[in-house]
Each structure stands twice: as structure tokens, then as C-alpha cells.
């Protein structure tokens, strides 16, 4: 689990964005990624693997490993380390493979 350091962003007066990780509110510095929000939230996993159902958290944080895949604001399979947080963003775990949904086609 990670923690914020208020002294890291003193100039911005601690400008924070509230997002929701698996429904839990988390305060994240502006400009940080959804993956950072996941790690700050203490969530035990952000996805489970399609093959073995193993829990995963972000590994590389630079868009290489794809272990940070999450459903963000209703869109599945997003690389959460590449998505900056926005107020009210909803980050949900990606459980197994992405399911095809009828409303995606609508």
C-alpha cells in the first residue's frame, strides 16, 4: 500500500481529486494516474487474470505490463497507469477477461 506525502505538492496547496476505487473514495493528487489511485486506495487487486483468476496490482506504471487493466467509467480493459484521474472517476476491478456487452455495440 502507498501513502501520499503532503509535502510533495506544497505549491499547489494540496490540490486533490476525489475518485472511487471499487466504490471507496480516494484523494489523489491532480495529474496522477488511475493506477496511482488504486495503489493509494489499498485495494488488494485491480484485476484478476483471465487464465488463473490470480489477483494483480500495477507492476510497471509506464504502460508496458498491462497488469493495471481496470474498468474506468464503464470502459473495460483500460491501462489505468495511462489514464489521469478526473473528479468523480470510477475505477472498478477488471475481473477476468472483458465481457462483450450489447450496449457496447449500441
Amino acid at each position: 500500500m502507498f501513502r501520499r506525502r503532503p509535502e510533495a505538492r506544497p505549491a499547489q496547496g494540496g490540490r486533490l481529486v476525489e475518485v472511487f476505487v471499487a466504490g471507496k473514495p480516494v484523494q489523489v493528487p491532480e495529474g496522477a494516474s488511475a493506477a496511482a489511485a488504486v495503489l493509494l486506495s489499498g485495494a488488494p487487486a485491480i484485476r484478476t487474470t483471465p487464465v488463473g483468476g490470480a489477483p494483480r496490482l500495477p507492476y510497471c506504471m509506464i504502460g508496458i505490463c498491462f497488469d493495471c487493466l481496470a474498468e474506468i467509467d464503464g470502459v473495460a480493459n483500460r491501462q489505468s497507469c495511462l489514464v489521469p484521474v478526473a473528479p468523480g472517476m470510477r475505477i472498478e476491478p477488471q475481473v477476468g477477461a472483458r465481457a462483450a456487452r450489447i450496449e457496447d455495440a449500441a
Binding site: F2, R3, R4, R5, P6, E7, A8, R9, V28, P29, G31, A32, S33, A36, L39, L40, L57, P58, Y59, C60, M61, I62, C81
Partner: peptide
């Protein structure tokens, strides 16, 4: 995680 990942969290979120 990778060491670089922890450094990215420090740089981007002060975490």
C-alpha cells in the same frame, strides 16, 4: 512491482 514503478508513483503522486 518494478523499482521504476515506485519512482513513477513518487514523481506523479508524491506517494
Amino acid at each position: 512491482m518494478s523499482a521504476g514503478a515506485a519512482q513513477i508513483l513518487l514523481k506523479t503522486a508524491g506517494a
